[in-house]
């Protein structure tokens, strides 16, 4: 019982710190890529406390609910957006020993995919209950995007599960071999791109395109509730990076992984998060039709071909 509580506390601590670190990295990395300095003053040393200051600022702001909005739905939506990622973090293995998994589970992969999929409901709730046309349009775009990209996302994950012969996340890491990097490369690319679209990060941020929709389904949100949505986005980055690490990059595998496994996992997660941030700076936003075209005409066929290849190699 105590072990379970300690694990949950550990996951909560990770949940509170990792997104902040990723967020701060995003500030600084984006700034340097654009020949700026980014935050420099908060906390005195290279603006390390900027996000904490932002958090304090969000708490102080007025919590506005529009008069025409559907009050209860509007107020619950940010929590519904945040919760799935917290649950997903519970199941991601950090190191080779079971004590380092939030909760080891036989069907871990399935649980994580199912739970991440629930996030769409929050977007639709926020979009509709805001009673704002921009919000609704953003929500509909998001729903179309998430429903579409869910398919290559799950198919690519299924390919690894087939290769490893298990749905358990630790089992997949145990079965992983370095040459899988080559063999599962198409699935890796599909999974990563679809994952980016799942968390609506640029270049897949059509649902919140500020030049067209103000801020999509987030338009009416202020203060702490808006901060929750932002936090959900950064936890989403951590979850997608962690899933990519565990499924395709060998999780804790590395030199001295019996002792340093958790370090390898964290390093890989941060490396993938860095790529996610990099893509935001490097690529312009995809138009809505390009976005759907990429999903249905490129990612889904590639994922299906990868499934055939995986099955062929497994049977042979």
């Amino acid at each position: 019982m105590i072990a379970v509580i300690v694990r949950v506390l550990g996951v909560v601590a990770a949940f509170l710190t990792l997104p902040l670190i990723v967020g701060q990295t995003e500030h600084k990395v984006m700034a340097h890529m654009q020949a700026r300095l980014g935050p420099m003053y908060a906390g005195a040393f290279h603006g390390w406390a900027q996000l904490i200051a932002d958090g304090v600022k969000f708490v102080q702001k007025e919590d506005v609910t529009p008069r025409a909005a559907d009050r209860p739905v509007f107020r619950v939506a940010p929590l519904v957006a945040l919760l799935p990622y917290l649950v997903a973090l519970l199941f991601i293995p950090l190191g080779p020993r079971d004590t380092l998994v939030g909760q080891p589970l036989d069907v871990g992969l399935f649980v994580v995919l199912a739970v991440v999929g629930v996030g769409v409901v929050a977007v639709l709730m926020a979009a509709w209950s805001s009673a704002n046309k921009y919000s609704l349009l953003g929500g509909l775009r998001a729903a179309a995007q998430l429903l579409g990209y869910e398919l290559p996302f799950v198919l690519a994950a299924a390919s690894v599960a087939m290769a490893a012969g298990t749905l358990s996340l630790s089992g997949i890491v145990n079965a992983w071999r370095p040459w899988w990097l080559l063999w599962q490369l198409p699935a890796l690319v599909v999974f990563f791109v679809a994952g980016l679209a799942e968390i609506r990060r640029p270049p897949f941020d059509m649902p919140v395109a500020d030049s067209e929709l103000v801020f999509g389904y987030l338009t009416e949100y202020t203060g702490l509730r808006f901060a929750f949505f932002l936090l959900a986005e950064y936890v989403g980055i951590v979850v997608i990076a962690a899933l990519t690490t565990v499924l395709f990059l060998g999780g804790w595998k590395g030199p001295f992984d019996a002792q340093l496994g958790w370090l390898w996992t964290l390093l890989k997660v941060f490396a993938v998060s860095f790529v996610i941030i990099w893509l935001r700076v490097a690529y312009p936003r995809l138009r809505e039709d390009q976005l759907q075209r990429l999903c249905w005409l490129v990612l889904v066929p590639v994922a299906l071909a990868q499934l055939v290849l995986t099955a062929a190699v497994r049977v042979a």
Binding site: V120, L124, A143, L147, E150
Partner: peptide, 9 residues
């Protein structure tokens, strides 16, 4: 994740 979302959509 899918059926109800499609319905709401």
């Amino acid at each position: 994740g899918a059926v109800v979302v499609l319905l709401l959509f």
